[in-house]
Design a protein around this nucleic acid. Structure first.
Lengths: 207, 207
DNA sequence: TTTTAGACCATTACAGTATTACGGTCGAAA
DNA sequence: TTTCGACCGTAATACTGTAATGGTCTAAAA
């Protein structure tokens, strides 16, 4: 029997993750202390360490939480009964939303930390691999159904993924100098969308 | 009558630029001292300052030199009597070569300097604007001749430019961790080429 | 047994300072 | 006009002591 029987261990971790997310997105990874997160979560610092071994792992959990939500939505699209082109279009929109969420966590800043670098690398490599698999699936599906006409689905998928990724990096860099409150990534969404349209046309069977 | 009548002032600046280029690409902007560049150029440091007012301006001159050579080649392509698609293909190859040259100067490192940032920004903004104009020209030309079918040449050009730019940034970032001697940007060339092919197909008139 | 927190430790970031190195200048000379 | 040795002022660097903070431990509460 626990002290707060209404909150299981899983709910506690969720509580902590939310508190951490709030603090991290507001002040950035380095400016936030574990004591502050603990206070935000309404408990002592040592309690945090009961659930998370290090500050880095806590941050990782925050990111993982977002990734999980994103990947769940991706699965929804995969299962939909629509054309491959339409799936790719919807995926691009979803990917932009996910990017927007991650941006607020200032991940690029955290990347400068020696400790965090390999952890983040691993995290994003996993999502990147899954993303590639998903895009690949869309394109293979479209190829099979005669919607697309391409030599290699693998190449087409990878280039498309990289082009989208490149656009995101480009815009993130462009926004570095801009005041945080003024940042607007809508132009990025438009370019991602436009690129997708042209790319889809480029791999579509001529008709 | 000068001390060395065989070398005009213009040749001297060229000599200095070459010496600086060599040093900068070998050790990077910050690790190289003006004394070292002077020694490499076979003259005293004070002489350098007769031709260039600051270290930053000297670096700028080195970059400008490469940009000039690049833009000359671009003009050659523009004037060629080939299809717009073919011009764009050749441009992509040339752009990759230029990128490869600039990469050796470790420009991204130099960008961290507060003094250099605005200077580099201005430099690359100019080239970027010219690049956009050139790509725009290709696409408008192709549209006029019925080769391409698009709503807006401006949008198509900008998205294409950004996608290529994004790919370059992506690969440069990916190579950061890699040992300098091991860096190989050929995969980037291939992706730029593949993207161009698909993009060209995407904006081409269906037939 | 699970969970919490106060006290504690060790490491690292940071402020302050002394020193050096380097970008840049000047005046004389060729 | 061009070159260079000598010089200057600033800014990066190395160094040191201090404070902050990530992380641990023990004991008690639930």
């Amino acid at each position: 029997m626990t002290a707060h029987p209404t909150e299981s261990s899983a709910r506690k971790t969720e509580l902590i993750i939310n508190a951490a997310h709030q603090q991290f997105s507001r002040y950035g990874f380095f400016k936030v202390t574990m004591d502050e997160i603990a206070e935000q979560a309404g408990m002592g610092k040592a309690s945090l360490y009961y659930y998370f071994p290090t500050k880095e792992r806590l941050f990782e959990a925050v990111v993982l939480n977002e990734q999980r939500k994103f990947l769940d939505c991706v699965e929804m699209i995969v299962k939909k009964n629509i054309t491959a082109s339409e799936k790719l279009r919807q995926y691009v929109q979803l990917r932009f939303e996910y990017f927007n969420k991650i941006v607020t966590l200032n991940v690029s800043e955290v990347r400068s930390s020696t400790k965090m670098k390999p952890i983040l690398r691993k995290l994003f490599d996993i999502v990147s691999a899954q993303e590639l698999e998903v895009i690949n699936g869309f394109i293979r599906e479209g190829k099979k159904l005669g919607e697309f006409h391409i030599r290699s689905a693998e190449v087409a998928a990878r280039v498309f993924q990289h082009a989208l990724h490149g656009l995101r990096i480009l815009y993130r860099r462009r926004m570095e100098d801009v005041d945080e409150a003024e940042r607007n990534f809508e132009p990025l969404r438009e370019e991602m969308t436009e690129l997708a349209e042209v790319y889809l046309r480029g791999i579509s069977r001529a008709n």
